[in-house]
C-alpha cells in the first residue's frame, strides 16, 4: 500500500478533483462482487494467480485476493507485476523504484488474473501480457479493473469491471482502495 500511495502522489499533484465516484464502501462491494464473478467463472481457484499491476493495481489485487480467500475458504496465490521495462512509452512515464514484480509461482498452466485500477488505452495491459511471457505460459489470462473509462487504443477488453464510466479525454480518474474520484489535470 505504501508503493501505491507514493505512486499516485505524482499524478495527484496536478489532479483537480470534481466529484466522488466511489466511496470506500462502493469499492469494497464492487471488489466483493467481482470476486464472486471470478469464482463463478473460474471454478478451479487453486490454479488462480492474482497479480496486481504496479502500482495502482496492487491494492486492488490484494483486496480481490482477500475476498477470494474469504469466499472459497482456501488459499489464493497472489503477487504483483511491474511492467515499466515492457512499456512502449517508458521514457515519458515516471517510474517508481519500489514497484517490484513479485510473482510467487511458475505461471506455466496457471490461470492468471491481472488486476488494475483504471483501464484506459490498454497499453499497460499489453505490456503486462508481454511481461507475463517472461514468467511462463499461463493457461489463460483474465483482466479485472476497478474502473473502465473507455478510449481503448488496443483490442483489449476486461473480464471483470468494478464500474463502467464513459469519460472525456480531458478528464482524469483516480481510484484507490479507499475511494475513486473524477476530475481534471492541471498541468500549469
Amino acid at each position: 500500500m505504501d508503493a501505491h500511495a507514493s505512486s499516485s502522489s505524482r499524478r495527484r499533484d496536478a489532479f483537480v478533483p470534481r466529484s466522488l465516484l466511489l466511496s470506500e464502501d462502493d469499492v469494497r462491494r464492487a471488489v466483493r462482487r467481482m470476486a464472486h464473478e471470478v469464482v463463478e467463472r473460474v471454478r478451479d481457484t487453486e490454479s488462480l494467480v492474482v497479480l496486481g499491476l504496479q502500482t495502482g493495481g496492487v491494492g486492488f489485487g490484494e483486496l480481490l485476493a482477500a475476498s477470494l480467500i474469504d469466499i472459497t475458504s482456501a488459499e489464493v496465490c497472489h503477487g504483483t507485476l511491474d511492467v515499466s521495462f515492457y512499456r512502449d512509452d517508458a521514457a515519458q512515464r515516471p517510474f517508481v523504484a519500489s514497484a517490484v514484480s513479485r510473482v510467487p509461482v511458475d505461471l506455466n498452466d496457471r490461470l492468471v488474473l491481472l488486476v488494475d485500477d483504471v483501464l484506459f488505452t490498454g497499453r499497460t495491459i499489453r505490456s503486462a501480457l508481454n511481461a507475463l511471457g517472461d514468467f511462463g505460459r499461463p493457461r489463460a489470462v483474465q483482466l479485472a479493473v476497478m474502473v473502465d473509462r473507455g478510449h481503448r487504443e488496443l483490442p483489449i477488453r476486461p473480464d471483470y469491471v468494478g464500474k463502467n464510466l464513459p469519460t472525456s479525454l480531458s478528464e482524469e480518474i483516480i481510484a484507490t482502495t479507499e475511494c475513486g474520484w473524477i476530475g481534471t489535470r492541471d498541468d500549469s
Binding site: 515499466s84 521495462f85 515492457y86 517508458a90 508481454n130 511481461a131 517472461d134 514468467f135
Partner: peptide, 11 residues
Amino acid sequence: VNQRTIKKVPA
C-alpha cells in the same frame, strides 16, 4: 529481473 528464470526485459 536477474533472479528470474528468463533474465531479460525488452527495455
